[in-house]
Amino acid sequence: MSCLHIENLTVRFETRSGPVTAVDDVSLDHEPGECLALVGETGCGKSVLALALLRLLPAGARVQGRVRFEGRDLLALSEREMTSVRGREIALVPQNPSLSLNPVYSIGHQIGELYRMHRNMGRRPARDRSAEQLGRMGIQDPRRRLRQYPFQFSEGMNQRALIAAAFALSPRLIIADEPTRGLDETLRDEVVRELALAREAQGTRLILITHDLTAARALGDRIAVMYAGRLVEIAPTEDFFRNPRHPYSRGLIAALPENGFQPIPGPTPSLIKPPGGCRFYPRCSMKRDICALEEPPLRRKQERWIRCIREN
């Protein structure tokens, strides 16, 4: 069975003010067939984690740990082998859809390029497949739209074009980085629906990276919460929303509009000098004295994992 296992993944960047540990000792299993939603505030390391999996971080990043995907360690592959994994086996839908498409090529050229380069298709069949793929993403009149350029598409349409491109080669795993960012509610619901449909149609597994809990709830089978580079809770979606256990998870859910917009007090900690002890301690409403001294491990409780002293 195809699986993704992340073991003790740590990503460090050297900066002028000191090393930044953007992802700190993260271990995560992605079960076959599931959609995992990775949530957390901006800057908590979600996107860095995704880029690290596909080895797309800049050369200055130091990545440690293991990423096992279908029996191989992705971090040990050569760049050439990695290039054939990207797109064909694991595709990443990058952030900022309008900027992630090349402005000088038509949408059709950019989706068709995948079929032509990776599948050795001719121009015409590649165009047919692209139109089909774009139509599946809910874009009307895809043949005409294929001739247009990214600047003629709205942000939401570019997002869908990128998702269509990611699904094009039927990869086993798709990582979508903030696919609903900057979209209004209607568009967000549409993108979420199309992701769900495409996922069902092609049986692709999905990792959804988002700070949008509504999208995470709609798509995710499990929710993984990251805080300051650390995983703090992993739980099945329904349990998570019904009964969040980690104080940070509770804070996130209390901050939802339908629950009255109660913000989590205090600023996000610096990743250069993270607080000693539990990283959430300075902002936690249920802290005890010991929280400042030692960081609890990620502990298993039935189907969920929680990193909190109160769970002892």
Binding site: L56, R80, T83, V85, E113
Partner: peptide
């Protein structure tokens, strides 16, 4: 550093392909 270069890498295009079809025209 433009995002579409990373975008192309996310979709599995090789460095040579990106140089020829994404960077050179710019």
């Amino acid at each position: 550093e433009m995002e579409f270069v990373r975008g192309a890498r996310c979709l599995g295009f090789s460095h040579a392909h990106i140089l020829a079809s994404d960077v050179l025209p710019q």
